[in-house]
Design a protein around this nucleic acid. Structure first.
Lengths: 251, 251
DNA sequence: ACCTGAACACCGTTCAAGT
DNA sequence: ACCTGAACACCGTTCAAGT
């Protein structure tokens, strides 16, 4: 899918939606139709996502991806024009997981359902989530998400320009909710993570109480997220309430 | 300042707040007190920020920074323990520009003033802005900002944990507002930028009207920000309204 | 105290070949 | 159609020296 959108200055390997050979599919039983060599594009994206999930985006290198597939780094370049294409495929993967539902429910509930579905889709992949902000309009999946969000904002009463500005910002803010969850990176192993939390807590607690009383009082919550579901709930509520306030809908 | 906060696993070169030699100061007349060799830490941060502003964070390399100062790459390592320390100094620089005012105005206006001051500080530096999210608690300037924000949220009626969660998210969302402004990166020269805007507009307009009618209708606003002041205003309003809704303050 | 020089282990990527 | 091999121009960083 991502190949079908000519991103300026990326070149990309041929292909419109119809004629390209390797497809990005989420099905894990994809080998039957798509895999010809030892590599399949879908399998590469799976692996790339797994690496990003486990060790963060810095760990995701072309050489690493190749090695894990028992292949030469250059083999990757047959499936992706460059690294940006891999990142684009990751963004698309996440965006394709957003459940847009059936366009039936009425406005207020539909917007809420949409925002929660968006968070649900990206939440399992905090590292890759950061990729979607700049790539929302670069895949069919992203365009579908964007179109859906814009429609809801227009129904809520925003004019076209404001809907566009707020729509992008609204989704970007939810990505931020996921990527900036309090606490050390989720890529550490539990013990190591716990140690970092303790260190951070100690550091904040040791600050000058004259100057940083609030930070000290919040040390626990700043050092680590106390309740993930509550955190994501309250963050989504904030955005939702903000949008509703701007659309003039009291409720 | 940033050296005074031992970030776990970074090592850092010596120093508590009092005994370190090169200081990070914003004053450009800093040479008188601090500069001993040909390099001064403040000048390096100035330069690093200028590079990030002009060409983005990818352009900011240690080797580039060294070359622009007519010095060997290794010279940088006397002033900063590693690249992360440079990025930390950039984050601190932005955070130190946030005008926290005098703690006098009453709650509702104070929160609004704080959010606008935060946006004003980071807005001129979209590339570097992205650095502050993960480094809010790693400098005195950041701690001052965090403490101020937490205080305002508590005054607004949030409990300590919620204030911590919302405070981080609220500021991160505003960073996102700046970094994900619609349109191509500001690091391109005008002509090149205009060309990209045109291309993007054309691409979006050419989409299937059956599936992406909203995106097509918003093509102009999605391809480039129509009105920057309005965009930043409306985004800040959204966060502000969201926070107020959650604090139960109707106004 | 402040900087240089040479070297190392990585990156992404190009180009020309293989099968 | 799919992958390899060698090479290039970059990175950040260490280590040992210079002055």
């Amino acid at each position: 899918m991502y190949e079908s959108f000519p991103i300026p200055g990326s070149g990309g390997r041929a292909g419109t939606l119809a004629d390209m050979t390797p497809r990005t599919t989420t099905r894990s039983t994809t080998r039957s139709s798509g895999a010809r060599g030892t590599l399949s594009t879908a399998a590469l994206v799976d692996r790339a996502l797994a690496i990003a999930d486990a060790e963060g985006l810095e760990a995701l290198t072309i050489r690493r991806l190749a090695t894990e597939h028992g292949v030469t780094p250059m083999a990757i370049y047959w499936h992706f024009s460059d690294k940006e294409a891999i990142l684009g495929a990751l963004a698309e993967r996440l965006l394709s997981q957003v459940d847009l539902g059936s366009d039936e429910p009425a406005p207020p509930e539909a917007l809420e359902a949409f925002l929660r579905a968006f968070v649900t889709a990206i939440r399992p992949h905090p590292a890759a989530a950061s990729l979607v902000v700049d790539r929302l309009l670069d895949s069919e999946a992203g365009l579908a998400v964007a179109d859906h969000g814009l429609g809801l904002l227009r129904e809520a009463g925003l004019d076209q320009d404001r809907a566009a500005e707020l729509g992008k910002f609204m989704l970007s803010a939810l990505v931020t909710l996921v990527t900036s969850e309090p606490g050390p990176r989720r890529t550490l192993e539990p013990r190591e993570r716990a140690a970092e939390v303790r260190e951070r807590k100690a550091q904040l607690s040791a600050l000058d109480p004259e100057r940083f009383s609030q930070v000290i009082a919040s040390a626990d919550a700043l050092a680590d997220c106390q309740n993930e579901d509550r955190y994501f709930g309250i963050g989504t509520d904030l955005i939702l309430a903000g949008v509703r306030a701007l659309t003039g809908a009291g409720r």
